[in-house]
Amino acid sequence: MKLNTNSNVYTIVYASVIVIIVAFLLAFVSGALSDRQTENVRLDKKKQILSALNVDLAACADPAAKYDELVKADPIINSEAVVLAENGGFEVDVKAENAKDSLQDRRLPYYRCEKDGETKYVFPLRGAGLWGPIWGYIALNDDMSTVYGVYFSHEGETPGLGAEIATPKFQAQFAGKSIKRDGVLTYISVLKAGQSDENADHVDAISGGTMTSRGVEAMLRDGISQYEKFLNK
């Protein structure tokens, strides 16, 4: 018997079967790979933190071990600088915490690290670029003011323009800048090359990436201000 491939029944059965097969296939692939993917995401986060600590990842064979070596603690605090937990900050979802309306409710992780015998503090940052979210980490010296290193990344900024915030060239500008003047938080301004800010340290923005550069400036301000009490302690 030859099937009538244009009958209604055949069409409905065919569609159902295809969808069910594809659904099982995708579920299987996702299930089989999810452990590896989560592991990759965690490893990537560790690499980002190491990158803010100016660790040369290209020369680092085992980033996870390097992370364990440098990061001594990852406490969670709140905006009043009260310690909520001594460890476990790594697991905090910064995006979800930033979405909370009240600053007091946010659980704020930071990372206390030892590098070359000095204590460094790393703080997560999250903000908005031109096309989507941008995020990063900022490492401060133990004076809680001088920037030791930064790391920025983005989801979909324009390659060659806004996406340049993820390059070492842009990030290298931040080292040595101070986020405070006379003990008051002034953050870091991201300004068009040639301009300067009387009231704060500044770095040069990306030419052609103005909106993303502004996003970085706002992200630094929003991210660091949450830790104000802790930084002034």
Binding site: T5, N6, Y10, T11, Y14, A15, I18
Partner: peptide, 9 residues
């Protein structure tokens, strides 16, 4: 493939 839903498939 049924002709009527070929694009969907």
């Amino acid at each position: 493939i049924p002709m009527r839903i070929r694009i969907i498939v």
